[in-house]
Design a protein around this nucleic acid. Structure first.
Lengths: 120, 120
DNA sequence: GTAGATGGTTACTTTTTGGTAAGTAGGGCA
DNA sequence: TGCCCTACTTACCAAAAAGTAACCATCTAC
């Protein structure tokens, strides 16, 4: 198979946490283990399909673990793996920087709202 | 105009540094002011079009400054703004985490190469 | 007068990503 | 019997992001 080539480290990172949803999902999992339904309530804009798709990709990258409880109705819990935890600091900074960015833009007169801040 | 709504800070951050190219460009500008041609040599995979497009967007977000020297042939220099510098720590961590990720995957037997590490 | 250097734009196409809506499973429960 | 719950999948379609290739402007130097 062909060798995959990266030119700079950040490429690999963005391949894992990039895209519209992954960093958001990870920011939520940073604080707690969550069930599928909890995640979709926490991220109301995301569709079922995108949620599971992104979770699978994060699982494949060994960032998120999936724990299935064999019950009916089904129960599945997602959490950061130990390796995923190594992203925690970065995720926190990404949240905080974004909050500050929104503050600036608001102060600049832009019509923007931020619904919740990263409390921890 | 409709109010733009974010649910969590990281959304705003990723809107600015997300996508295939922005974080790479920023990682290069983190170390030095660069001319257009230098950037495209530093990021050989990027096309002219994408390079200028991404730089314009970063300029609009006030992350990058553009300094035109009125010469022939033209000379244009790009640099992080003071505000852009506030991303420097995050960008560095994204690079370092990615380097480590690549190391792990290599150790895991995946065929991957990283051409250069974030030296600073 | 023609080619080269630099930075940039445009029209067009392809690829990737995301969204919608419907369907599956299987036990609980009225 | 039939509907609910939860997690998940699938087929299909729309939109956004990125790639390609050709083109412009301007002065310098041959």
């Amino acid at each position: 198979m062909p060798t995959k080539t990266y030119h700079i480290g950040v490429e690999a990172t963005m391949e894992i946490i990039g895209g519209k949803w992954k960093s958001i999902i990870l920011c939520h999992l940073r604080h707690q283990t969550m069930r599928t339904g909890e995640l979709s309530r926490a991220i109301p804009q995301i569709s079922q399909k995108m949620l599971t798709q992104q979770l699978r990709e994060l699982e494949t990258a060994n960032i998120v673990s999936r724990h299935v409880f064999h019950q009916v109705p089904p129960k599945v819990e997602y959490a950061l793996t130990d390796y995923g935890e190594s992203l925690s600091g970065i995720l926190h900074e990404l949240c905080v920087w974004g909050e500050d960015n929104i503050d600036r833009r608001q102060a600049d007169g832009e019509k923007i709202t931020l619904l919740s801040r990263d409390d921890i």
